[in-house]
Each structure stands twice: as structure tokens, then as C-alpha cells.
Write a protein that binds this DNA or RNA. Structure first.
Length: 477
RNA sequence: CGGGGCGUAGCGCAGUUUGGCUAGCGCGCCGGCUUUGGGUGCCGGAGGUCCCCGGUUCGAAUCCGGGCGCCCCGACCA
């Protein structure tokens, strides 16, 4: 097995190396598409389970809508069609015959779900309608990258309808809170929640909200979005209800999503030159056991204790893997599991059998410093607190990195320097055109207007006009 | 869509300039021995439409023409 390209040498290659060497995914024989391998899919499933639980706890229900959307549906909302038409995959032939109306392979499902909502909603009593679907979508991207932007990707898309503008806004914000909580508490990724600028918002939305995270190369990644669609789609699809005074009213709708892109975030936020670091709460394998022996005699004793340990930890509810592969040296296995990012490795050798102890090695502290001896008694408790501590340490170092590379800037010169490598926080009162000019000159865009504002006012970093809000700028994926 | 690179074993590549013997190497894979507390070593073996089509030639991975595909950088996009 060879080593990954160091991050400092070529970050993009490091990223694709890690994905393939850690066995998360591989290129498919179709341009821009990937095969998610079992280890990568297991991570996605853990992520899915965790998010799904949160959606259900807040009253949402899962459903499933068709992969194909009639072309005319896409065209009903003006901004929506303009935003998405360049990246649509279109089916024109079915069963050997040219279709009367082409079918779009869904790039997102606002339109077809809007069409169904119009039929399902009649009365204020039908509201709110809170639906989520887990699905694949297709966007014909010009420049695909594994997990970050693949032609086909997996995601969840929530779609809700409400009686009032206030309720729709509250839903949009609530969901963003769920995404933030998920990112921080499950994936150990600190994020900046905020509002999208006019030019960055979703095609057809009133407002878009986002959580932005800083990757290991100091670029930003939009990790999830939540949109208040206002009445735009309700009007396009006639989603109406009768209010208590028997008046027809348009609904206020929302949509929100998190995708397999999140896997890319996990790789780029935590990974190092030895490979992945899986956040413990989502890790497909939380603990790997590596038995070490020379003779058959040793093997019998070591395996007995290794199996006992395996069972103890499994019964305690951990995701445990026994690496009893023959013919591979311990050193090889250590490196292999470090590449895969398993948070805790348990080493058991003849010496440990004698002393009724094991060696625990933590992935976030490489080498000897991360190793500690631990008695077999009470192992499960110790593993539990160690996993917690690893989660915290991953989160803390990601947060420290983000803070160290985020600068508050007042002049445009300082701004330009800051966004070369990192985030810049700056007062902003510019127009859409100003934003485009900044992008042209620096490649940086407004990632969001953070919820967390200093208050008061300041001087816009670009126009010099009086500004009431601070924007977060960065180069983004 | 613009620029660059590449297509030869599962993966990474050499060979192509200057056509010629049975198409090689490393990793991985299979078998055996050896080794095992930080990427063991040795021996043997399996594995190929040299991207595709056409042409030139006694002879093409190699030369000529056409096509296809993928990757990277940029523009676009969320």
C-alpha cells in the first residue's frame, strides 16, 4: 500500500487519494459519477440515521416521489428554471419511442412535490404539511469532484407547506438549527450558520440559509441549506388552502437538504496525511481490535482475550471490528486502520494477556503519545469516555483552525489578503454587482451573512457606504 | 465550454521519438516457506481486445486519418 499525497503538496490529490485508499468510494465508468463502497456507504447510513431521527422528532414524515419530472413542471417557476436548466439531464426516448413530453431526471423536487401538495392541501387543517424524502438527484455539473459535486448524488430533501409566512420562516430556521446541531455534535464540524446573499440564494427562493464550514485548505464548503420559498412555488403550482373565514390563501413553503457532500466535509475537516479521522459518533467502525502473536500457543491465548474483548465492547453497544486477517503484520494493520480513520485501536498481544490489560491507541494522537494501557475490567466505560474525548478534540481543533484562519478586515487590501487563505469577516453594503466584482477580483464570495452579528454599523469594505451587517467571505468549493 | 494531461494486467507506470524476437516493471492477487508490539523477506504462479474504427506496411502498442473516454486547471453551478 502506498502513501497518500501530502496535503501540503497537492490538496486536491490528497483528497482523492484518501477517498480511494480509505475505501470510501471509487470512480465509476460514467463521467462525474462515483461508486460509494461499503465503508463509505456505512458512514452515509450513520449520517442518515442520525438526521432522520431529528426530522422525525420534529414532526416530519418520510415519503417518496418520482425520479422523473415532466419538463413543463420545471418551467413553471421562472427563477427556478433559469437556475437549473443548464444542468438538467433529460429523457426524450422511452420504450423505443420519442416521448410526447420530455422527462427531467430530478435535480431537486420542489416542482413535483409542489404539484402533489396542491392536491393534498385543501384546508388550513391540512397544515402544516411536513415531508422529507431520501433520494438520489442528478445535476449535470461541468466540473465534478468525488462527494463534493457528483453528477448523481444522494441526499434528503425536506418540503413543507405552512399557513403563514412566520411559520414558514420558523420552519426554515428550525431546520438550519438541526443541521448545525448535526454538523457539530455528530460530525464534529464547527459551522457558521447564516443567510445567503441575493446572488447566492436558491433558484426560486425568498431567503436561503446555510451552514458554512472551513475545510483543511481554508476554503469554505456549504454543508447544508434551508430555503424559505415564500409563496413563489405555491403560486406556480396553485398550492392553496381555505382559511377559517373561507378565503382561498396561498401556502408558504420551504425546502431544505443535506447531501453526500457532507462526507466530503468530514474528510477535509478532520483528515491528515495519514488518512481519514472518522468522527466517533458517525464512524462505521469505532473500535478495531488488532491481535498480535507469534506462535500457535500465543495465538490461542491472544485470540481468546481478543474475542472476549470484542464481545464485551459489542455488547456495550460499540461498533467493533476484529482484524484477524492472517499474514499481515501488526504495523501494516495499524497503518491500514489509521488510513480508514477508526477512532480507537485496541492492540492485544502476549504481554497484555499476561497482565490482563490492552493497549488503546487513539487516531487523533498518532504514534506512541496516543497509546495507553488499560485493564480489561471497566474497558467499556473507558472506551466510551475516550470516544467522547476524541469527538471533543476533533471539534476543538477544527474550531481552533477555523478561528485562526478567520480575520475581521476593514480595508479592501486586508480583505484581499485574508481571502487568499481563509475566511474574512467584513462590513458589507454592496449590491449584486459589487458582489460579482469582488468575486471577479478575488475569487471569494459571500458565504453567508452570519446570524451572529456585532450590531451597530460600519463601513462597507468594498463600497465604503454605511453597512448594517457583516458578511463572511471566502473562496468556496 | 476554454486550456493541459492521459488511455498498455485490478491499480500505478515503462516501452511509442527511430515499426521487427514470446509486450515489460512495481504494487496488488494466488500457492509455499518465513515473519508478526509501527507498512516482513524470499521462491514460484495466474492475469493482456496495448481505448475503438479505418489506413500504410511483409510486419503496427509504435506511423497516418478519424472517433470515443477519463482526469486535472479555469469559467459555470449549489
Amino acid at each position: 500500500m502506498q502513501k497518500v499525497t501530502p496535503r501540503s503538496e497537492d490538496y486536491a490529490r490528497w483528497y482523492t487519494d484518501v477517498i480511494q485508499m480509505a475505501d470510501l468510494a471509487t470512480y465509476a465508468p460514467v463521467r462525474g459519477c462515483m461508486v460509494i463502497k461499503p465503508y463509505g456507504y456505512a458512514l452515509w447510513e450513520n449520517l442518515q440515521r442520525s438526521l432522520d431521527r431529528r426530522f422525525k422528532e420534529t414532526g416530519h414524515e418520510n415519503a417518496y416521489f418520482p425520479l422523473f419530472i415532466p419538463e413543463s413542471f420545471i418551467k413553471k417557476e421562472a427563477e427556478h428554471v433559469e437556475g437549473f436548466s443548464p444542468e438538467l439531464a433529460v429523457v426524450t426516448v422511452g420504450g423505443g419511442e420519442v416521448l410526447e413530453e420530455p422527462l427531467i431526471v430530478r435535480p431537486t423536487s420542489e416542482t413535483i412535490i409542489g404539484h402533489m401538495f396542491a392536491q393534498w392541501i385543501n384546508s388550513y387543517r391540512d397544515l402544516p404539511l411536513l415531508i422529507n424524502q431520501w433520494a438520489n438527484v442528478v445535476r449535470w455539473e461541468k466540473r465534478p469532484r468525488l462527494f463534493l459535486r457528483t453528477t448523481e448524488f444522494l441526499w434528503q430533501e425536506g418540503h413543507t407547506a405552512h399557513a403563514t409566512s412566520e411559520e414558514a420562516e420558523a420552519e426554515t430556521i428550525q431546520i438550519l438549527g438541526i443541521y448545525r446541531e448535526f454538523a457539530e455534535e455528530q460530525a464534529a464540524i464547527p459551522v457558521t450558520p447564516g443567510k445567503k446573499s441575493e446572488s447566492e440564494k436558491f433558484a426560486g427562493a425568498l431567503h436561503s440559509y446555510t451552514i458554512e464550514a472551513m475545510m483543511g485548505d481554508k476554503r469554505a464548503l456549504q454543508s447544508a441549506t434551508s430555503h424559505n420559498l415564500g409563496q413563489n412555488f405555491a403560486k406556480a403550482f396553485e398550492i392553496k388552502y381555505l382559511d377559517t373565514s373561507n378565503q382561498q390563501q396561498y401556502c408558504h413553503t420551504t425546502s431544505w437538504g443535506m447531501s453526500t457532500r457532507m462526507v466530503g466535509a468530514i474528510i477535509m475537516v478532520h483528515g491528515d496525511d495519514m488518512g481519514l479521522k472518522m468522527p466517533p459518533r458517525l464512524a462505521p467502525v469505532q473500535v478495531v481490535i488488532v491481535p498480535i502473536y507469534k506462535t500457535d500457543e500465543e495465538r490461542a491465548a491472544v485470540m481468546a482475550m481478543a474475542n472476549e474483548t470484542h464481545e464485551t465492547l459489542r455488547n456495550a453497544g460499540f461498533r467493533v471490528k476484529m482484524d484477524n486477517r492472517d499474514g499481515l503484520t501488526p504495523g501494516f494493520k495499524f497503518n491500514d486502520w489509521e488510513m480508514r480513520g477508526v477512532p480507537i485501536r485496541v492492540e492485544i498481544g502476549p504481554k497484555d494477556v499476561q497482565n490482563r490489560q490492552v493497549v488503546l491507541a487513539r487516531r487523533d494522537q498518532p504514534g506512541k503519545e496516543g497509546k495507553l494501557f488499560m485493564g480489561v475490567d471497566g474497558l467499556a466505560e473507558n472506551v466510551s469516555s475516550l470516544l467522547e474525548s476524541i469527538h471533543q478534540s476533533l471539534f476543538n481543533s477544527a474550531l481552533a483552525f477555523q478561528k485562526a484562519n478567520t480575520r475581521e478586515v476593514e480595508t479592501y487590501d486586508a480583505f484581499k489578503e485574508a481571502v487568499q487563505s481563509g475566511f474574512a469577516l467584513a462590513w458589507w453594503a454592496g449590491s449584486r454587482e459589487d458582489e460579482a466584482a469582488v468575486k471577479e477580483e478575488t475569487k471569494a464570495t459571500i458565504r453567508c451573512i452570519p446570524f451572529d452579528q456585532p450590531g451597530g454599523s460600519g463601513k462597507c469594505v468594498y463600497t465604503g457606504k454605511e453597512a448594517k451587517e457583516v458578511a463572511l467571505f471566502a473562496r468556496a468549493y
